[in-house]
């Protein structure tokens, strides 16, 4: 029986000078399924993951594996497998030696290097220097590093970036298989469509804050409406007072709530409406509304 380990973010906060990269992020990632960590570029995903892995010191809050910080794990690589960006290689070292160095450092058997090279499909190129690798091959090598310790937890930052269609299908299957084996899998992405078919739960961040946490199904059925009033500011104030997420567009205010509720709030506040229209948004639209306008869409 595999040890089951949660990833726990508790009020995690990081400020770089005056920049609030991550603000009060709390969520739990459970084993047995793939969890997506979504948000546009610059939303604070990578910084959150680097704090989880002990590479960046949080300003406040904690990020742990079942209550244990990464640096206090007894066998870090055998507990948590990590793939961050696809560029952490010395171009003059071969893939096999790259993995061997970290296997030695983490006390992992040498034969595991050959196994993960086979598993990620780069065994034939293993004795070539990484400098000549394509982005897709680097991604696979990054994944091979993550799988080196046969870990209970996988933390993967944009693992699909740069893979070809065949590679994307392969990694989707692999992630689901790893989750089905009872592992905890956290996958970040800036594109919902990339992970839509793989993840069950999503945590969406924007500007360093969590804007949605739950299943994809619930996200899809989340009602939104577009509403406007001659006195738009008064309407906005009333809606925000009711704890609703409001996004201003040229056409009006986009609000994540049922249109009947919005109408009632406006009436109570005494704001006459000029527009109230329920939206049947697709998943991608909901995502974009959540993360707000002008934040690295499609980048």
């Amino acid at each position: 029986m595999r040890t089951r380990t949660n990833i726990e973010f508790r009020n995690l906060t990081k400020n770089f000078g005056a920049v609030h990269a991550v603000s009060d992020v709390s969520f739990t990632v459970e084993p047995g399924r793939v969890t997506g960590f979504l948000g546009p570029n610059g939303a604070g995903k990578t910084t959150s993951l680097r704090m989880l892995l002990g590479l960046v010191r949080p300003t406040s809050g904690t990020a742990t594996f079942g209550g244990i910080e990464y640096r206090n794990l007894e066998r870090p690589l055998a507990t948590v497998g990590t793939a961050l960006e696809a560029s952490s290689f010395n171009p003059g070292r071969t893939a096999r030696n790259h993995l061997a160095v970290y296997a030695i450092a983490a006390g992992i058997a040498r034969k595991r290097v050959g196994e993960v090279l086979e598993l990620t499909g780069i065994a034939e190129a293993a004795d070539r220097r990484v400098g000549g690798y394509s982005l897709g091959m680097r991604q696979r090598l990054g994944l091979a590093f993550a799988l080196l310790g046969d870990p209970e937890v996988l933390v993967l930052d944009e693992p699909i970036n740069g893979l070809d269609p065949e590679g994307i299908r392969w990694i989707r299957g692999l992630l689901q298989q790893l989750a089905a084996e009872g592992r905890t899998v956290l996958v970040s992405s800036h594109l919902l469509s990339e992970v839509q078919q793989t993840v069950e739960r999503v945590v969406i961040v924007s500007h360093g804050r969590i804007v949605y946490e739950g299943t994809l199904d619930a996200l899809e059925s989340a009602a939104t409406a577009i509403v406007d009033a001659p006195d738009r500011d008064a309407l906005r104030t009333a809606l925000e007072a009711a704890q609703l997420v409001v996004t201003e567009t040229d056409a009006g205010l986009v609000v994540s709530a049922a249109s009947a509720d919005i109408g009632a709030i406006a009436q109570r506040a005494g704001v006459p409406l000029s527009l109230l229209h329920a939206q049947r948004a697709g998943l991608e639209d909901v995502f974009l509304q959540l993360v707000g306008p002008g934040t690295g869409v499609g980048a």
Binding site: L53, G54, L55, Y70, R71, L73, P76, L77, T82, L84, E85, S87, S88, F89, N90, P91, Y102, A105, A106, F145
Partner: peptide
């Protein structure tokens, strides 16, 4: 190690 960002895997393997 700094230039090629291999401090990341280095500190992951030995925090």
């Amino acid at each position: 190690e700094v230039r090629y960002q291999t401090l990341t895997p280095t500190f992951l393997a030995q925090p």
